[in-house]
Amino acid sequence: MKTESTLEKILASGQLAVTSECGPPRGALPSKVQEKAEMLRGCVDAVNVTDNQTAMVRMSSLAACILIKQMGLNPLLQMVTRDRNRLAMQSDIIGAYSHGINTMLCLSGDHPHFGDHPGAAAVHDIDSIQAVEMVKKMRDEGLFQGGQKIDGPPKMFIGAAANPFADPFELRVARLAKKVKAGVDFIQTQCIYNVDKFEKWMEGVRERGLHEKVYILAGITPMKSAGMAKYMKNKVPGMDVPDDVVKRISGVPKENQAEEGIKMCLETIDRLKNVKGVAGFHIMAIEWEHKVPEIVERAGFLPRPSF
């Protein structure tokens, strides 16, 4: 075991892991974090805490992680390379670890262009792959990126994202291989609606034996409504929502669309459970956190293993 991370222990035990996320509030109210996280108690193995997601200012991921840790849950620190240079990232990483946060996700982040401070400079001192390399060096060699020794290195279980649906598709397995080479421990994927395409990507992943080097958590986001399905299809970069998904949810009366969305995501989970190399699920119910326990239960993932 490389770390004390509960997520690592569950994945190493061979059981399907379940993670979910909590977007911090746009303000200083700790109760907003606590209420959201409380809904996830007992039904997930780690709670991703997003880092200024969609390039909108929110409570820092680190601060919200600490609040969640204090509740006895397992926060997962997300960190984008957009807002911090390597100094700031490393100081936050050791700071997080000093609070017992031992699981993190390295991302490049949405471009400021999409957020509420479009005039902000994007930092991008390093990219997500270099961030993975940096965190691994901190953990395994006890060295800062700059080469100096760390007095009490942070032992982080290191995650990254993968989007099998972005273009060019043919290099998406190679890009995962780059992350594996950098030393990533687990992957959380983009939301999967095009299951055929995901399975094709997994085939490529298995052909290269990457599934034996990294745990892959399949990203799942239930559709709340036909409107959301259309929005995801047309407006979100890198999202692949096939026509039949939109058609199916649009085909039921409005008041039943949410339930249909849940059913569809459960069917996806069911199908992916049997795909070799899928090590778990990352359920992102955007502003719909209270549905996560129900999804986890109906998917047969309860009770969660304890370590």
Binding site: R82, S108, G109, D110, H111, H113, A122, H124, D127, S128, I129, Q130, A161, A162, N163, A166, D167, P168, L171, R175, K178, Q190, P237, G238
Partner: peptide, 19 residues
């Protein structure tokens, strides 16, 4: 747009940038 030395990011769509 993100000066990624190890790209592409997950937003690359049909040859165009997500931005």
């Amino acid at each position: 747009s993100k000066q990624l030395l190890n790209g592409p990011c997950g937003g690359s769509t049909r040859g165009k940038c997500e931005v």
